[in-house]
């Protein structure tokens, strides 16, 4: 089942992408429409060729050398999504200090002291490097009168 999904899901996705770029062109002038339409045409031809080769079993999926854990993948993906959504509300420092140790521990890292030390050190270095040295602002939030 997974193999079929890996083979046909990208093809379905490519057809969907082509369809979107073909039809969402309401306000386009003829001049601005020609180039993307030409590209969509090329993409459709290539995707159809890919579909034919896949049906003829002439395409091979890459083999990973590593043994992977679907559970760990779900953990790192979910944690990263939550982290990205948390940054605007908690600021970079707070959300990073929650995300990094929590993800490492959920992935199975055992040394709790080390994980907190490395996380704090990284956040402090990034904070100093960006805000002080490079003068680049980071997403912040005001908590208890402190801008973090």
């Amino acid at each position: 089942m997974t193999k079929y999904l890996d083979e046909y899901l990208p093809i379905a996705f490519l057809y969907a992408l082509s369809a979107y770029f073909w039809w969402d062109v309401e306000d386009f002038t003829a001049d601005s429409l020609m180039y993307p339409r030409a590209l969509v045409g090329v993409l459709l031809v290539l995707t159809t060729l890919l579909l034919v080769f896949t049906l003829m079993k002439k395409m091979r999926l890459p083999q990973s050398k590593d043994e992977n854990s679907p559970f760990k993948f779900c953990v790192v993906l979910a944690a990263s999504i939550v982290y990205v959504f948390a940054v605007p509300f908690l600021g970079f420092a707070v959300s990073s200090l929650l995300y990094a140790p929590a993800t490492a521990l959920l992935l199975g890292y055992k040394r709790k002291g080390m994980v907190f030390f490395v996380s704090i050190l990284t956040v402090v270095l990034i904070y100093i490097g960006f805000r002080t040295v490079l003068k680049v602002p980071l997403p912040t939030v005001t908590l208890l009168g402190m801008t973090l």
């Binding site: 790192v76 990205v84 990073s96 490492a104």
Partner: peptide
């Protein structure tokens, strides 16, 4: 550990 490296790289990606 890759379990520690992964979230640390993510911090750099966000920033």
């Amino acid at each position: 550990s890759t379990d520690l490296l992964a979230p640390i790289i993510m911090l750099l990606c966000v920033v």
